[in-house]
Design a protein around this nucleic acid. Structure first.
Lengths: 249, 249
DNA sequence: CGCTAGATTGATAACTGTCAAGGGCGGTGG
DNA sequence: CCACCGCCCTTGACAGTTATCAATCTAGCG
């Protein structure tokens, strides 16, 4: 769990890995990012990193753990509209709106980097990084569309299956998947608030997936035992996450 | 229905009106846009303007009618993930992905403008227009998030109410709302595919809204009879559509 | 004036939510 | 090292919402 700055520079932090997936970076770009990724701090689970109504500025990156974008209803109901996994960057610099329309909070203990406005501009001044960040933003938007599809036209079980497939691809992109497994350090209530269901129903749907031999969960580690069948049932096609042909299963 | 080029230049087409809402434009910007908006063509209802898998290039603008972004499931189920109303622009130039992940189709007869890649770059070369288009894209993304909230955490009636409120604000921004009314030239099936429901259930929910005296529909014209109550029941807060304080009801 | 897509409506089934009561596991303090 | 506590996971019974299936009605259009 401990991250040594030297280690980051050597192996590359998740943000670097992710952006490299979108296009080749120069040595100097990597160095800039590595430096940037070394300035991390810890945030406990359930903490708000950004509140709705905050003035947008700077950037926020996740290097460990899961965070999310979410909104609340007056009755307390929460809807999660995006996961921020290691390597993901929220860029508030480009936001032309004067207030942020959603909150950002952690779903687990997270290691994060807060980038001040000036530092953010320095990073964006590097063409390759600017391009990478922009690509990442477009992918995030494609994910939003796919989630709309998920909520509107897939059943409970399919929604979970689709989400798990998406996360596998995203975790692989930052080197955090091990075969068809990855750590999913979030609660069933979080899954419920993601998929528009109840935690009770999430529990039952997970049970269904387990009984069908499609997934397995040991502690926080999720394994997609039968990825082809999962992908088929969820009609998961990873094209929205990549430029080219995805990694083989 | 007929649009005279001179008329557009004089009154300003919907795209111009929309972008002006995001920030002041120079005369030359307006002229460039007006010229651009004069090159329209008609598309019949139910036509595909962009197919999933197309290579992204150029831009596409709507000046009359309703279009949408959508995806299909293998069983034919459709999910609409965005409405394109007059003034809206789909920009495929900035898409770094090599294939479009969704289709764009008309929901009614539409007047559209297809902008070739070079022309699109000419427009973006104007700083004010570039800024405006970028703001528009960010608003579109905010709308996606709000739709996720809608699908995940609002009831059938609330979803419709929220959608109608959002469309009122958006139609006002392009001068196409008359008081609390506007033309909604789409079918109940389209509403169903937007809100993740069935056309049957849309019909019943609309009936509920009508019986409650909240909306009224005469032909294609929708009237929000009791906007305050509608906004309250849907917890509609237009902050995600604007920079500043919205127009009073 | 006949056609056809879209709007309505009723009856019934399926899915998902709500309420409530345990059960289990990790984490903390003694 | 162990007991206690709290959060989360599970499970059952029941209610509410939404989907399905099918038939009828209606309005715009050629």
């Amino acid at each position: 769990m401990k991250v040594v700055p030297g280690g980051i520079a050597a192996t590359g932090g998740p943000v670097l890995r992710k952006l490299q997936g979108f296009g080749r970076l120069e040595e100097a770009d990597a160095t800039a990012l590595a430096l940037f990724e070394s300035g991390t701090r810890l945030a406990p689970s359930g903490a708000d990193l950004i509140c709705e109504g905050d003035r947008p500025e700077g950037m926020l990156a996740i290097t460990e753990g899961f965070a999310c974008r979410y909104k609340l209803r007056e009755n307390g109901a929460r809807q999660i509209m995006a996961y921020l996994i290691p390597g993901d960057v929220c860029d508030f610099e480009s936001s032309v709106l004067d207030r942020i329309d959603h909150a950002v909070g952690t779903l687990s203990t997270c290691r994060i980097v807060r980038v001040a406005p000036e530092a953010a501009r320095d990073l964006r001044a590097r063409p390759a990084l600017e391009r990478g960040l922009r690509t990442a933003a477009l992918v995030d938007e494609a994910i939003l569309r796919e989630w709309i599809m998920n909520l509107g036209r897939r059943s409970a079980v399919e929604r979970l299956a689709h989400l798990f497939c998406e996360l596998l691809v995203r975790m692989r992109a930052v080197g955090l998947a091990f075969g068809n497994s990855y750590d999913l350090p979030i609660t069933q209530l979080d899954l419920a608030d993601t998929t528009g269901m109840t935690s009770v129903h999430v529990n039952r749907s997970l049970g269904e997936l387990k009984r069908a031999g499609l997934i397995e969960r040991k502690g926080k580690r999720l394994t997609l035992c039968d990825l082809p069948r999962l992908m088929e049932m969820a009609e998961f096609r990873p094209n929205y996450l990549h430029r080219e042909v995805p990694v083989a299963a």
